[in-house]
Every structure is written in C-alpha cells, then in structure tokens.
C-alpha cells in the first residue's frame, strides 16, 4: 500500500519547481514543446541550447540525472523507428563510415530524436514534480472539459481497487488448482476479465448514486486548487520564453 505514495511518475521532493501550481507547469511545458517543434531540424546549435534549458529545469527541480535518464527510456520505441529511417528513406544517399545512408532520412531521424527527447524530458520534469491529482486539478483549471478530468480522477482513485479485485480473483482461481498453461485457458482468464468489467461498471453506478446523494450536479466543486501568483507565471514562463527565443533565432538564421 505504501507504494501508492510514489505510484506513477511522481517523485516526492521539494523546491521551487515542486511549489509551482500544476496548471502553470502544464502551460510552460506545452509552450516549450511548441517552441522545440518549431525549431528547424538543421539548426543544430539551437537544439544544444534547448537541451541546456532542460538541464537547468532538471537542476531547478532537484531531480537526479540518473532518474531522468531512466525515465527517458520510455521513448526507446520511437528511437528504434528513427534509427531505421536513414536506411529506408528515399532521397540523396551519402556514405557514413562505410554505410550508404539517405540524407533526408538522416535529417528526419535527427529531427525525431532531438525533438522527441526534449519533449519527453520536459514531460518527465513535469510528471516527477507534480502529484497526479494536482495535474488533474491543473487541467481542470485550464478548462479541459470537466467530464474528462472527472473520468481521469476516478481512474486514479479506483485503479487500486480494481487491481485488488483482479488479484483476489487470481488467488481464488489458483486456490482451486488453476494455472494458465495453454491457450485453451484463455477463456477462463477472459471470463475473469469480463466479471471484473461488470464489477467495475456496478461500482461506477454505486459511486454515482453516492455522489448524487451528496448533491452532485455534474461538476466537481473546485475547493482545493491553489491560484497562481504573477511570480509563479514569470518563473515558469522562463522555460518556454527562452525556448521560443531560441526557435525564433534559428528560424531567422535559416531564412
């Protein structure tokens, strides 16, 4: 149960980045990602500057480098795709260390790798310094449709209960000497999944009933979110503003 404190991508800690209201951080990260994406792929020094910004953000958030690097592995599937591009893309071919590669393919691969890594790194900083529920409150503040925020809130709250249900059902199966050994047993496991769905659905109805009984009218009352000060906005804006400056410089330089 204690694992729930650190469940997900959040990493308990403190500091100026942790203290920022969630919606401010969300806006800053999304704006920064736009700036990165707007940077022309061949403006290599600009990407070094973007990476420098992310490093500063990681430092400000007091996140260990190893932690961020481990979290970055989530983009590995995209890396594999990017690495394949120089071999298979069409266009002018050049020879690098004895390999014949497509030049546009190389640029495209670099484009995906550099922008992907920067975007994921910014998201890692956001997720590591913001509790999951705070992220949802941030989205609500940013006027994301309330129904979507509520669905995500319930998912977070009830994921544990559903996994517990699943675990109990597995224990009950195994206690009756069942182990999934071949494909024919998939039917039994699927029946378990089906009954889990029904249970989840019925619980949803009961939760809704309990909410109605306490005067729920369709929106969750906002009682807890912290309003952002001008200082918060200025501090968080540093990342996307500098990113935008770098992108603008690169665009002008390329023109």
């Amino acid at each position: 149960m204690g694992a729930a404190h650190t469940r997900g991508l959040y990493r308990p800690g403190s500091g100026p980045v942790y203290a920022l209201p969630a919606h401010v951080k969300i806006v800053a990260v999304v704006a920064f990602v736009f700036a990165v994406v707007a940077t022309p792929a061949t403006a290599f020094p600009a990407f070094a500057l973007h990476a420098g910004l992310i490093l500063i953000a990681v430092r400000a958030a007091r996140l260990p480098a190893g932690f961020v690097l481990r979290r970055l592995t989530v983009e590995l599937p995209f890396v594999a795709f990017a690495l394949a591009l120089p071999f298979f893309a069409a266009g002018e071919r050049i020879v690098v260390y004895g390999l014949t590669l497509s030049e546009p393919g190389l640029v495209a691969a670099w484009n995906i790798l550099a922008k992907g890594t920067l975007g994921v790194a910014a998201a890692v900083v956001l997720a590591a310094t913001t509790r999951p529920y705070a992220l949802l409150e941030g989205l609500q503040r940013l006027r994301v449709p309330s129904i979507m925020v509520q669905i995500a809130t319930f998912m977070l709250r009830y994921a544990d209960l559903l996994t517990d249900d699943l675990r109990r059902m597995r224990i009950a199966r195994e206690s009756r000497a069942f182990t999934a050994r071949h494909l024919g047993h998939a039917r039994i496991v699927a029946a378990g999944a089906g009954s889990l769905f029904i249970r989840g659905y019925e619980r949803g109805e009961r939760v809704h009933l309990a909410m109605l009984s306490r005067g729920y009218t369709g929106t969750l009352p906002d009682t807890g979110t912290v309003p952002a000060t001008r200082r918060d906005w200025l501090f968080a804006a540093a990342l996307p503003l500098l990113g935008a400056l770098i992108a603008a410089g690169a665009l002008l330089g390329a023109a």
């Binding site: 709250r157 939760v207 309990a210 009984s213 729920y216 009218t217 009352p221």
Partner: peptide, 25 residues
Amino acid sequence: IVFQDPDDQLFLPTVRQDVAFGPAN
C-alpha cells in the same frame, strides 16, 4: 445516506476533499 461500501462513497484523493464534497455542492 451512508452507503454500505465506503469505497463507493469515498471517491476523492484525500479524506478532507471527500468530506468537503457535499458541503461544497
């Protein structure tokens, strides 16, 4: 109404928020 399964009733991230839900409505 206090329903039979408290997990049906307590659906918000913290106890405080959940207790505040009714009066906030």
